[in-house]
């Protein structure tokens, strides 16, 4: 495999991690959605580059699915949900940005240490992809943990799934059936969560997930 192929793959996968950080940094909801769409575009680019390098045409389908569903449909739907909930001006007070970023860096370092050790037998491209994919997954989880707002928790969840797709394409791709079913299950999950959002809103007049804690009587 040539130098250029590896470098471009590195560029796209690294770009994906970078966009994950932009998601963590962003606290306005509409901007968050735009960054999320950008992440889907980068993912699609990365997957199609892998398809080209590996000579695996079915990966183009994956890229198209990512581009169509995650860069267009999901952000648009979320846009409409936010508009209907009327929460677009809510600035979230997260665990402040600095510590979150530091935690994110720690997670990236962790995933690199773990993945590069574990996968020493694989080809370099797959190793690198797996390391970056794990960090995208962990950053998505971190985003879900540090946010109160239910919409941005959804975005965290979706970006986590982007990481999974990256991992799958790095490891010689998964079967197309599995891929499509994963894509659709994510969509279903999205619909369910969307409905849930409106229910939470109806019940508690807010989409701050802390309201649920109070309701449960847990945290004090």
């Amino acid at each position: 495999m040539g130098h250029l192929e590896f470098d471009v793959a590195h560029l796209f996968a690294g770009g994906l991690v970078l966009v994950s950080f932009m998601l963590l940094y962003q606290d306005r909801l509409y901007a968050l959605l735009n960054v999320f769409a950008l992440q889907a575009v980068v993912l699609a680019l990365s997957v199609s580059w892998q398809a080209y390098v590996q000579g695996a045409p079915h990966l183009y389908v994956t890229a198209a699915i990512a581009l169509f569903f995650k860069a267009i449909i999901v952000p648009m739907a979320l846009h409409r949900i936010i508009a209907r909930l009327g929460v677009h001006r809510e600035v979230e007070n997260v665990v402040s940005t600095g510590p979150t970023m530091l935690a994110g860096m720690g997670l990236v370092a962790l995933s690199m240490v773990v993945m590069l050790r574990v996968t020493s037998a694989a080809v370099p491209l797959a190793r690198e992809d797996l390391a970056f994919a794990l960090s995208v997954v962990l950053l998505g989880l971190l985003m879900m943990v540090t946010r109160n707002n239910a919409v941005s928790q959804i975005v965290g969840f979706m970006s986590l799934e982007n990481g999974l797709i990256l991992a799958a394409t790095g490891a010689k791709g998964m079967p197309l059936v599995v891929e499509i079913s994963v894509a659709f299950s994510v969509l279903i999950a999205f619909i369910v969560i969307g409905t849930l959002l409106f229910r939470i809103r109806e019940r508690f007049d807010t989409i701050d997930a802390e309201a649920l804690d109070r309701f449960r009587g847990g945290r004090r």
Binding site: F6, H10, G14, V17, L18, F21, Y25, T97, G98, M101, G104, M105, V108, A109, M112, L116, E128, A131, F132
Partner: peptide, 18 residues
């Protein structure tokens, strides 16, 4: 500036991978 620091750190980390 935290974002700048983060970018620098990320650049170093990515470099270590490759």
């Amino acid at each position: 500036l935290g974002a700048a620091l983060m970018l620098g750190l990320l650049g170093t980390l990515l470099l270590f991978v490759s």
